[in-house]
Nucleic acid binder design. Structure first.
Length: 160
DNA sequence: GCCAACGTTGGC
DNA sequence: GCCAACGTTGGC
């Protein structure tokens, strides 16, 4: 697989929305709480400063892409794993050899309009995009340049 | 609220 | 190492 440079990050807006990201200092947040090995490996092995992110609202009505962001810090230990008060606490993660990592992302632009999952599914050129596939639960997914460009182009066109 | 899909856990 | 049970995700 070629080295990905474009990503889709899922977040439930009821717990952390694009508005929340834009409200942060410098519109930048630690992307903590990732507890899936495949998603962690993407952060550890493939994600670099400057990579592009589609910010996706999952478990929303409707779900879809709301804005873009950039990677501004490469992977480093997720310290919520050692915080027994955190919902992401994982006592099996050894501070000397951390199991879980996070990156920092910075909000870039809110899309001119929200692009819903239904619209993504209806677009034939996005047929291979992971997020439209049934049962795809990964919270961090690679996106191709073509998919990235198409989603942004959709947001520039009127709602169909 | 339902439930399919899928990752993780743990008994064996 | 297998796999049933369980918990979570997330669309609908």
């Amino acid at each position: 697989m070629p080295e990905p440079r474009y990503w889709l990050f899922k977040s439930e807006p009821s717990s952390y929305s694009y508005d929340d990201l834009q409200s942060e200092n410098d519109q930048t947040a630690e992307w903590d709480g990732v507890r899936n090995y495949q998603a962690r490996n993407f952060m550890r092995d493939d994600m670099r400063v400057g990579d592009y992110v589609l910010f996706y609202h999952s478990n929303a009505k409707p779900p879809g892409v709301i804005g873009t962001a950039r990677i501004v810090r490469e992977s480093y230990p997720d310290d919520t794993a050692w915080d027994s008060n955190s919902r992401y606490y994982d006592p099996k993660s050894d501070p000397a050899n951390p199991t879980w990592l996070m990156v920092d992302i910075k909000a870039e632009t809110r899309l001119p309009r929200f692009v819903s999952l239904n619209e993504l599914k209806a677009n034939q050129s996005l047929a291979d995009m992971q997020v439209i596939k049934r049962g795809q639960r990964l919270s961090i997914q690679p996106v191709t340049l073509e998919e990235w460009a198409e989603v942004l182009a959709m947001a520039d066109r009127p709602e169909p």
